[in-house]
Write a protein that binds this DNA or RNA. Structure first.
Length: 547
RNA sequence: GGGCCGGUAGCUCAGUUAGGCAGAGCGUCUGGCUUUUAACCAGAUGGUCGGGGGUUCAACUCCCUCCCGGCCCGCCA
């Protein structure tokens, strides 16, 4: 029964896509625990696109758990795949992105054709291998976002013999395997053998199978050259024998093999698999392995600033980077949105995503009217999966306002301004205030990084370069005297107006002068109130252009 | 070349399952908060539903075709 991965989870009355998918899974009446899988080759720096493999499954898992099912979410590191090209960028365990020049690139080049887990870690850490290193980064991402997933190493599945029965069956039915795969791939001919032995001599995975002896569980091979994209990975020419554990199945068979070994009931995958691997995988599962394929689901790819995400070209944003400017729950919310739409992640416009999340949260708590019933239902169902704790008296400071609060490093000043502007309620509990102000750090980083209009910085250390007319200078001196007398922010704000009027200065010019002196900018926070919060001596000296 | 997914207001997106008055938020504009900006409140502004053709009493929705973005047919989230 062919299943269209584009159709699953569609056409139901559910407002949250994950629930429609859960319906489709339940319809199969699977045994508990229900297994949900994702997976990726640890080929380089993992980015937020890869995170689809974890988050899409996460929401489906949660939906099923809500219905009382036991669910196991697994993630296979497809780390026995071979390195086919040296990536342009790598990242150490602290997510520092480095170019090839900073690591031993020559060593990587010599390892083309070997499984990721047989290639030395390019960094000075204890991961154990290239594959383990990048899998660790993805594990860390999952931990940072707070999603609990079982990581399974594909290499270990082979090493532990888990794959042996499947490999044996595929090779035993090689004719059928060829027949099935040739429907999807042109290059499959009569000589095609669905197994890639690993050369005992050079460690590369080779396609040069000469003989299969299933009784002995052996595959004879010649280590030949392998075409990888536009380049050729040279074989060493060694003639040898490999066991079924010393190699691997080609991806098109390996994926269905994982379904069988792990008992997978549901697997989301990127659109790249939708036209190739999925139809053949489904066919292989049913007609070569004799198993039922999992419920499938396709998700669209993200773009970053309008361009395709690509590890090889370096257009990537990692989970770690995103969490520098967004709270984990906002990132999780990003994956609540319809997986079928191409979606752009834009650092520049991330404030809109946060606003959207805040609204999502408010709808859940009934603080704002949803636009329709579907939006209400989405919030009701998905919100509890997005946050760690559902806490009604949580406080959110609007993101751009939080960015503006980054102008001062003084936490008390931040809090007072936020309170005055009504973003922190009188009776907010301490934890909520703390959480709310934590957003300032992230928003500030965002504003700094993008250099946008919310990037204000109090120029405390040195006097900005100013040149005022005599009348302006007189007005500023007068205001300085007033501030020196000790008045609160509101009084100072009024006095700013009065002073400007007395000196016949345009209001906007006078404010601009104030912003120039404090921020070296033309705009800023409400000036009088802000001056009232700062230490008086500093404000007075600054107004007098003394320091 | 063949195939698949997406394109809805300036921006971010709902709505397309099963044809029935084109929506929300943000932005913008105006006014208010006897105080510029940010925020807040009130009101207003917003569309060839990617283009064209067809079916229908009725099309964002179905069919055909073309354009744009992305993907698959070799490995990729």
């Amino acid at each position: 029964m062919a299943e269209d991965p584009y159709e699953v989870g569609r056409g139901s009355e559910r407002a949250f896509w994950a629930e429609s998918v859960a319906d489709a899974i339940e319809a199969r009446e699977p045994d508990d625990p229900i297994v949900i899988k994702g997976g990726v080759s640890p080929s380089g720096v993992p980015h937020i696109g890869h995170f689809n493999e974890i988050m899409r499954g996460y929401y489906v898992a949660q939906s099923l758990r809500d219905r009382g099912h036991e669910v196991r979410q697994v993630f296979t590191a497809d780390d026995k795949d071979r390195l086919r090209a040296v990536p342009r960028q790598l990242a150490d365990l602290e997510w520092n992105i480095v170019g090839l020049g900073d690591v031993n690139a020559g060593a990587l080049g010599r390892n083309l054709g070997k499984p990721y887990t047989d290639i030395p870690d390019p960094f000075d850490c204890d991961c154990g291998s290239y594959g383990a290193h990048f899998t660790n980064l993805l594990k860390k991402s999952a931990e940072l976002v707070g999603v609990d997933v079982d990581f399974v190493s594909n290499t270990e599945l082979y090493a532990d013999g888990e794959f042996e029965a499947v490999s044996r069956r595929v090779l035993d039915r090689a004719d059928r395997a060829r027949e099935v795969l040739s429907e999807y791939q042109n290059k499959v001919d009569d000589d095609y053998v669905p197994f890639l032995p690993q050369c005992r001599e050079c460690g590369k995975l080779t396609e040069g199978v000469t003989e299969v002896d299933l009784e002995a569980g052996e595959v004879h091979y010649v280590c030949t050259d392998v075409e990888a994209g536009d380049q050729t990975i040279e074989g060493c020419g060694h003639e040898g024998v490999a066991t079924l554990r010393d190699g691997k199945l080609p991806w098109r068979f390996e994926w269905p093999g994982q379904w069988e070994i792990l008992g997978v009931d549901f697997e989301p995958f990127g659109k790249d698999h939708a036209e190739g691997s999925w139809p053949s995988g489904e066919d292989v599962a049913e007609n070569v392995l004799d198993i039922e394929p999992p419920v499938p689901m396709v998700y669209e790819w993200f773009t970053l600033e309008g361009e395709p995400l690509s590890s090889s070209s370096g257009n990537v944003v990692t989970v770690d980077e995103v969490l520098e400017i967004l709270e984990p729950e906002v990132l999780r919310y990003f994956f609540v949105k319809n997986p079928r739409k191409q979606r752009d992640f834009s650092v520049e416009n991330v404030d809109r995503l946060v606003d959207e999340f805040d609204r999502f949260e408010e709808i859940y708590f009934g603080d704002v009217e949803p636009r329709d019933e579907a939006e209400r239902e989405l919030a009701e169902r998905a919100y509890p999966m997005v946050v760690d704790d559902v806490r009604e008296d949580r406080v959110r400071i609007p993101y751009t306002f939080a960015a503006v609060l980054g102008m001062t490093e003084d936490p008390d000043v931040r809090e007072q301004i936020a309170r005055k502007e009504g973003h922190i309620p009188e009776d907010a509990p301490e934890w909520a205030v703390e959480d709310a102000l934590a957003r300032v750090e992230r928003a500030q980083r965002w504003a700094r990084r993008t250099g946008n209009e919310f990037d204000y910085e109090l120029k405390r250390a040195e006097l900005p370069d100013v040149d005022f007319a005599p009348e302006m200078e007189a007005a500023l001196d007068e205001l300085a005297d007033y501030v020196a007398e000790g008045h609160d922010g509101e009084a100072i704000q009024s006095e700013i107006y009065e002073t400007a009027k007395r000196h016949d200065i345009e209001m906007s010019d006078f404010f601009a002068a104030g912003y120039r002196l404090l921020f070296d900018d033309t705009e800023g926070p409400q000036l009088g109130t802000f001056m009232g919060k700062l230490d008086r001596g500093f404000v007075v000296k600054r107004l007098r252009r003394e320091a």
